[in-house]
Amino acid sequence: MGGAVLAAALVAAVPALAQGGKIWRCGNEYTNNPGADPAARGCREVLGGNLTIVEGTRPAPPPGAAAAAGSSAGAGSGAANGAARTPAERVTPDQQRQRDLEARRILEQELRRAQERLEQARAEWAQAQAARPAGTRGEAASGSARADELRARVERAEADVAALRRELARLPAADAR
């Protein structure tokens, strides 16, 4: 049985040797020609196994870019391959300010909702704690499970509020102009 495994490994290795040997990974690129100094490019040799690379499809350009690319394609510019940006794609400072204000408004609204959920969860948890009589053993398991569930709900709500506050802190100030 061991001989069959060794033979299969040798048969799999022969095509790799016939291709000229080494395959290198340079970031997200795989190549058999890493250049003069592979280490300088951050390339590492891929050891063992077969390597199959399937190229993905390129995304279609936006509808407005096709007309711009058609008009400038004869000029030999980079617009045909999507490298150049047209001025229509840029966002003006006023547009960016409006987008930031809208994002802030949405986050503040979500923060208010999250704070309401947190208050409700805390109230339910406190009510469950107060309603649980001390020293009951018959329902200790089900009461504990309910208390754990309510405590987890409070913790999730607190985490939501904290995350929304962090997101709001990352946005530019509402009065910055």
Rank of each mutant, 00 (worst) to 15 (best):
A8G: 09
G21W: 09
E124I: 07
G35F: 03
R112W: 07
A83M: 06
N28C: 03
A145R: 15
V91Q: 14
G42S: 15
A140R: 06
A162R: 13
A12L: 13
P172K: 09
P172V: 02
L51H: 07
A67W: 06
A88R: 03
D160A: 11
L171N: 08
A65G: 09
G35P: 00
D100T: 03
A9G: 07
Q96T: 14
G56D: 15
R85K: 12
G143M: 00
A36F: 11
G143K: 00
E55H: 15
A131Q: 14
R132C: 07
N28D: 13
A152W: 01
A123I: 02
D148Q: 15
L6Y: 00
L171K: 10
D175Q: 08
S71R: 08
A9L: 12
N33F: 04
A145S: 01
D94Y: 03
E110W: 05
A121G: 08
W24Q: 05
G21I: 05
A4C: 03
D175F: 11
A176V: 04
L47G: 11
E29H: 10
R58S: 12
W24V: 04
P87H: 09
R177W: 11
L6E: 05
E167W: 03
A173H: 07
A130W: 04
N32S: 14
G76M: 15
A69Y: 01
V5M: 06
W24G: 06
R151C: 00
C43H: 13
D94W: 05
L107G: 02
G64Y: 15
M1Y: 09
R146S: 09
E102R: 13
E108F: 02
G3S: 09
A173F: 07
A68W: 08
N81H: 06
V14C: 07
A60D: 10
E110K: 08
A114W: 00
N50W: 13
N32C: 08
E45K: 09
A8M: 11
S72Y: 12
D148L: 14
Q96R: 15
G74I: 04
E124F: 00
E116P: 01
L17I: 07
